[in-house]
Design a protein around this nucleic acid. Structure first.
Lengths: 192, 192
DNA sequence: CCGCAATCTAGGCATTGACAAGTTCAGCGA
DNA sequence: TCGCTGAACTTGTCAATGCCTAGATTGCGG
């Protein structure tokens, strides 16, 4: 915060991550330039490499952090519907993480930290489905729930639902969708 | 196909597009290099620029073409459920287009061709919802259907559903999900 | 057959990611 | 307190890339 320039930055890793998240939020992952992040942090152009190895390493770290945050968020939700809400909230609250998480070409797939974090989030996702004991096909219902939440979040982030959702609270809007999935008889197909 | 080298390529635009789609399918949009595409087409490094202006122009053209293809695919489906199936089929059949379409930072947002194509696809999407006349909230149902299809397709493409879906035909798998949305009483929430 | 515009080539510049080698510094043991 | 060691950071460099400009080639309409 103070403008003192020491040889050692103090928390360059965090500073670079933070700057990268800013850039991604504004212009997407493709706009991330290692040298630019270094400039923003006030260090030399090669300094970030010491913390992340290379560009892919940085993006992998962001993805891993994202899965950790997602796992945390999911674990706090009581039932499946609220887990879906938490999923959407996470995506909107951490758009940069979310984008990078779901572009596998950007990461090092075999990174141990990433795999561990992804597994944690995955476990939380599965745990949510067990809330639905009485459902005939919990696996199908789980995929449906995840698809619904993921699709809604993605479409929101890509500005494809700006008019239909408008000023409405996205979490509330998602609850309406989830009710369609799990409240019996809410929707009838004409010819069925 | 033949190795004759003429000054004029003949269909460089198509060749560059096609090469770009190959690259995107294999390594994502960030791996697209204009100079590389030129090499693959056997032309000089600046030739593609004449057809697409710049990298963003190329990706914009791909997105526009994608929306055209999507609109075509949707228009052929009879009802809302099959329109969802068509949506998923499109995403799996044209993964490169799909990826680029839903990364707005990669296009020139104000491109007229893109806007027109997007509007066409959007209209087809809305048209599908009118199939559900008797539904209390068609708008909500429409968003739900789109979210479900989009989320399912995205998760499939990012290899997040490899185990759960496995060898099953994705189209069939999606029909199960869609039935959960629109077949009343298929799923019951315990405490409701 | 001419000329013109579309298509493509050639060269150059600034920027970038990655690498190698050197510099600064903080902490730790004797 | 001293000196050492390794982590954190800097400086310099290279190949590759996007984009720009100027020039060469060619097909096509008049």
């Amino acid at each position: 915060m103070s403008s003192e320039r020491t040889y050692h930055h103090g928390d360059l890793r965090r500073a670079v991550l933070s700057a990268a998240l800013d850039v991604i939020r504004a212009e997407g992952p493709s706009a991330v330039r290692l040298r630019d992040l270094a400039r923003r942090a006030g260090v030399s152009h090669a300094a970030p490499a010491h913390h992340f190895k290379d560009r892919t390493g940085l993006l992998t770290a962001i993805a891993a952090e994202g899965y950790e945050l997602l796992a945390d968020a999911l674990s706090e939700a009581p039932d499946l519907r609220e887990r879906g809400v938490a999923y959407v909230r996470f995506a909107l609250g951490h758009p940069a993480h979310f984008q990078v998480m779901f572009q596998p070409e950007l990461h090092r797939r075999d990174d141990s930290g990433l795999l561990a974090a992804k597994e944690r989030a995955s476990a939380e996702l599965r745990a949510g489905i067990t809330t639905l004991d009485t459902v005939p096909e919990p696996r199908t219902a789980g995929i449906a729930a995840w698809s619904l939440a993921h699709g809604f979040a993605t479409l929101l982030l890509t500005h494809n639902l700006d008019e239909p959702v408008g000023d409405r609270d996205p979490a509330d809007a998602f609850r309406s969708l989830a009710d369609l999935l799990f409240a019996p008889g809410a929707v009838q197909v004409p010819g069925k």
